[in-house]
Simulated assay, not measured.
Amino acid sequence: MEQAKISANITIEQIVQKITSSGRINRADQQQFMATLLALNTLNSTEEALINRVFELLRAGRLRVVD
């Protein structure tokens, strides 16, 4: 399995858009999501809402986790 490179220039909004439009999250998406979050010092309300959206989709079963 090939590992995708984690881009330092991608935003939370771009990651969430990719995840929600595909309806799935894979390991590379998850790593990129977490690396981007950890690189931020603070979250604004928009970023918090986007993060919560991903978790709500996961909880509702509307986002598939794939390898």
Score class of each variant (00 low, 15 high):
K18V: 10
A39I: 02
I25T: 01
T11P: 06
M34F: 11
E13T: 14
A60M: 08
E47S: 10
E56G: 00
E48T: 14
L38D: 13
I19S: 02
D67L: 14
Q14N: 11
L40D: 05
I19F: 03
I51W: 02
S21G: 00
I12V: 13
E48L: 14
S22N: 09
I12E: 01
I19Y: 02
L58Q: 11
A28P: 01
V66R: 08
N9T: 11
R59W: 05
L57I: 06
E48H: 10
S21F: 02
R27S: 13
D29M: 04
T11K: 08
R24E: 11
A8D: 05
L37K: 05
T36C: 06
K5T: 11
E13P: 08
R27W: 10
N41K: 15
Q31A: 07
L43T: 09
N9Y: 07
A39F: 01
D29V: 06
N26R: 02
G61T: 06
A39W: 02
R53L: 15
A35W: 00
I19M: 03
A49M: 15
E47L: 10
S21E: 07
Q31P: 00
T11G: 07
M1V: 10
V54F: 03
T42V: 09
M1P: 09
G61F: 08
R59Q: 10
T42I: 07
A4C: 01
I10H: 03
